[in-house]
Computed example of a mutant assay.
Amino acid sequence: MGKGSHSAAPNAIGYQHQTWWALVELLQSGAARPDAALSLELYDDVAWEGEGTATELLQVKHHIGQNRTLTDSSTDVWRTLKVWMDEASPADIAGPGLALVTTEAAAAGTAVAALRPHTRDEKEALRLLEHVARTSESKQTDVARRKFLELGGAARLTFLSRIRVIDNSPHIEDVADQVKRHLHWALPPGHEDLFLAMVWRWWDDTALALLQGRQRGVDVGDAQAAIADIRDQFTRQNLPTLVELADVNARDLQQKYRTHPFVQQMHWVAFPPRNLQKAIVDYYRAYTHSVRWLEEDLIGLTELTRFEDELVDEWEREFEWMLDTLNEDAGDDEKKTAGKQLLRQLLGQTSLTVRSRYNDPYFARGQRHVLADTGRIGWHADFETRIADLLKVNA
């Protein structure tokens, strides 16, 4: 098992590198293709598309280890050529561009070196590849070499005119630095790592949708807008969302927080079980964000406290109205009903925001539960007495 697991590692790394490298390609080439879209495993490893037609196919090759050399006899070269001969109409001068992207370095004096953008010599590349196709005895490349020779001289030259070799591509461990370099214009001072983590999260989600076929491609304009939206979350009027609803396991949280005061407070007014579970999720997300924002220096304690004070002030007004509706001899059932109505009413009021442009309603809802957990606010008319008793029991 150990040997098999080890032998699979390079392939796994190669697939991961292909997905990550696609983001580099999107960032470095997207500006020149504003109306294009990038796809994964649709036409090729990576491909550019315009108006529903592939405009460039990219084969992405990753090799572990530095200073590896790509030659005209390499299996990578002939496997790639065979893929394109099978699927990319090699003799069609108007066919999509073809790019071999490799972490290896093209050896000097080879056809692959002659197909690099900065050392281009298509006729020399043709001569050298024809020589290898006729003289090599490799069983691994035999089918591809024979197919290449069967194209005919003019078709072979047309084929090579569409090919470029991008060698010395960054290894998987260097891709993150490449992404950071391409996004230097957007990095929020002091929060660079968090911003990049959010970009990577967006890309991983997007790449998964592409690979699963839920999304055909990612438009350059949409990608630019998504990254700009992430950057916008680091302005003075906004905040980044770091824990999405999809990140949370509601059942686990319900078990974890079942004895917390804010949960007990909801039980005291018979809050519906499903909505109670959602309230626990709101509490967790709001509490986690408050801690993370403070740790990342995205918000100050004074600003957060001011928001909490506004929530308490709002609650005091509504709580007083609730008490005013209850008779002096009101029973527990009446108090439960009134408290449930108060809780529902305040959870539906999300006009108060911690910042003007951060208006995700979970945060105001969750912060009310944070305050209820400390006993600053409550829903049942007798919550203060009950909280005091609860704290005595837990002491």
Score class of each variant (00 low, 15 high):
Met1Cys: 04
Lys3Tyr: 07
Lys3Arg: 10
Ser7Gly: 00
Ala12Ile: 08
Trp21His: 05
Gly30Leu: 01
Arg33Tyr: 01
Ala37Ser: 15
Ala37Asp: 12
Asp44Met: 12
Val46Thr: 15
Ala47Thr: 12
Lys61Tyr: 02
His62Lys: 02
Leu70Pro: 11
Arg79Leu: 01
Trp84Asn: 02
Met85Asn: 06
Ser89Cys: 05
Ser89Val: 08
Gly95Gln: 05
Gly95Lys: 06
Gly95Trp: 05
Thr102Asp: 00
Ala106Asp: 07
Thr110Arg: 10
Ala111Arg: 13
Leu115Ile: 07
His118Arg: 15
Asp121Gly: 09
Asp121Arg: 14
Lys123Ser: 14
Ala125Glu: 09
Arg127Trp: 10
Leu128Cys: 11
His131Ser: 15
Val132Glu: 14
Ala133Val: 09
Ala133His: 14
Thr135Tyr: 10
Glu137Cys: 07
Ser138Leu: 11
Lys139Ser: 14
Lys139Gln: 14
Lys139Tyr: 07
Val143Arg: 11
Ala144His: 10
Leu149Asp: 06
Glu150Lys: 10
Gly153Phe: 11
Ala155Leu: 02
Leu157Asp: 08
Ile163Ala: 06
Ile163Trp: 07
Val165Ser: 12
Ile166Ser: 05
Ile172Val: 13
Glu173Tyr: 09
Val175Trp: 01
His182Asn: 14
Leu183Phe: 06
Pro188Met: 09
Asp193Ile: 10
Leu196Glu: 00
Val199Asp: 04
Val199Pro: 03
Leu208Gly: 04
Asp219Met: 05
Ile227Pro: 02
Ile230Ser: 00
Ile230Gln: 00
Asp232Lys: 08
Asp232Trp: 07
Gln233Leu: 01
Gln237His: 11
Pro240Arg: 04
Leu242Thr: 11
Ala246His: 05
Val248Cys: 13
Val248Arg: 13
Asn249Tyr: 06
Ala250Ile: 15
Leu253Asn: 13
Leu253Lys: 09
Tyr257Cys: 01
Pro261Cys: 01
Phe262Trp: 00
Gln264Ala: 04
His267Val: 08
Phe271Pro: 03
Phe271Tyr: 15
Phe271Asn: 02
Arg274Gly: 03
Asn275Gln: 15
Leu276Pro: 03
Lys278Ser: 15
Ile280Tyr: 08
Val281Pro: 12
Asp282Glu: 15
Thr288Ala: 14
His289Met: 13
Val291Gly: 00
Glu295Cys: 03
Leu298Gln: 09
Ile299Asp: 02
Glu303Pro: 01
Thr305Ile: 02
Asp309Ala: 12
Glu316Leu: 14
Glu318Phe: 07
Glu318Tyr: 10
Glu328Leu: 10
Gly331Thr: 05
Asp332Asn: 14
Lys335Ser: 03
Lys335Gly: 03
Lys335Ile: 02
Lys336His: 08
Leu342Ser: 00
Gly348Lys: 09
Arg355Cys: 10
Asp360Phe: 06
Pro361Lys: 12
Pro361Arg: 10
Gln367Asp: 04
Gln367His: 15
Leu371Gln: 04
Trp379Ile: 07
His380Met: 09
Glu384Lys: 15
Leu391Cys: 00
